[in-house]
Simulated scan of single mutants.
Amino acid sequence: MFFTLAFVSLLIERLCGYPQWLVRAIGHPVIWIGTAIGWLDRRLNRAEQSFAQRKTMGAMALLALLTAVVTVTAAISWFIGTSLVALAILAVIASSLTAQKSLEDHVRAVADALDREGLTAGRKAVSMIVGRDPDQLDEPAVCRAAIESLAENFSDGITAPALWLGIGGLAGGAAYKTTNTADSMIGHRNERYEAFGWASARLDDLVNLPASRLTALLFVLACFFVPGSSARDAWKTVWRDAGKHRSPNAGWPEAAMAGALGLALAGPRVYGGTLVPDHFMGAGGRREATASDIRKALKLARVADIMMIALFGLLAIASEAIARA
């Protein structure tokens, strides 16, 4: 039933997204998880403690949060049951864990802002999806940032939660989302979080490993259906450049996207006023990315998303057949 749950939840989120009126009314699971992480951070991450103590406290905080989330979501799944109606209810809940529609909308907004209002509007739009300093970005850099965000967030915002929903049901998907949210909030290599966020960052690297490879493969395959993109170059770039990225996972989808579009993505970037060195994905490609490149990247992502939904549909059929055998 887990792969069926993942398949149906992907369809629901693809078509409907997470309604803004619902966000205003009750918030979003990521907001709830983020609130809990912030509370734990304020109470357990103390500057007067040693590095080892803060590292231990961070690991304990993550373990406690994961235990609570898994317990609650497993209880919800058990209470709802296994009927078709139960599956529909669980799928609606699980659809909040993926971000197909919202990611596409946010990335498209960058291209639209650049085309209609220029660089200032493009910087504002891209600041909603990346952590780097927008004022440091010229127009090609804004476009590259949007494309990089699309590639990386497709992996950890769509493929990974769907995969963990298929593996562990609602509890598995919620546990993944908790880990990923913790990493985005406290998994930073700075004075405050290098120790406290160590466990969150390492676990996030681990649980995102299969999804990042699958996403790269989906991008390569999607090239066959998007004119002007190159599956051959995407494949070559993944094998040449993915392992050079400072992240063990982000390099895979970014390298695939860079090769597909003939761009040079990643490279040195500025976060919080600090220059962060990194290798280029698609070294030798164009750095002068445009809004048209953003739109082509969106087409690739849309095709890859359709492929992924179809894959989960096949897995759902296969798992149901095995269960009945």
Rank of each mutant, 00 (worst) to 15 (best):
L314H: 03
A264F: 06
D135Y: 12
I186E: 05
C143M: 13
S96T: 15
F3K: 03
Q20L: 08
A323T: 02
G284Y: 13
M1P: 04
W32K: 05
R192S: 06
I26D: 09
D112V: 13
A321H: 04
G284P: 12
G166H: 11
G168I: 12
A318N: 11
S77Y: 02
S50R: 12
A195D: 14
G58N: 05
Q49N: 08
L206V: 15
E117D: 13
R123L: 05
Q100A: 04
G251I: 03
G251S: 03
M1E: 00
A250S: 15
R240D: 08
Y193N: 10
I31P: 02
S96L: 14
Q53S: 15
P253L: 09
E13M: 01
G187L: 07
A182D: 02
A318E: 13
F154R: 04
A199Q: 02
A211T: 08
G58L: 03
A258G: 11
S247V: 10
H188A: 09
R24T: 06
W252D: 03
W78V: 12
T178Q: 02
A211M: 09
P277W: 07
A297S: 10
R269E: 08
V270G: 06
H245S: 03
W39I: 14
L314D: 01
L203A: 05
G282M: 07
A47F: 07
D305H: 10
M308Y: 05
D278L: 06
S127P: 01
L214W: 08
G282C: 08
A242K: 12
W21R: 15
R287I: 10
D138R: 11
F51G: 07
N153L: 04
I186R: 06
L218F: 03
N45W: 04
L87W: 00
I89G: 01
P29R: 02
G259K: 02
D233F: 01
M281R: 09
G197V: 07
A160I: 07
S200D: 07
A216S: 05
G172R: 00
R213I: 07
T71L: 15
D135I: 05
D205V: 04
G168F: 04
R189C: 00
L10D: 07
N153D: 03
T73G: 03
L40E: 04
W39G: 02
E48D: 15
H188N: 13
T98E: 14
L203W: 04
F225T: 03
M281Q: 15
G27T: 14
V303Y: 11
A151M: 08
V303M: 13
E148D: 07
K244A: 10
A64G: 11
G166M: 12
A283L: 13
S200T: 10
G169W: 12
A297G: 08
L22D: 03
V30K: 02
W239V: 01
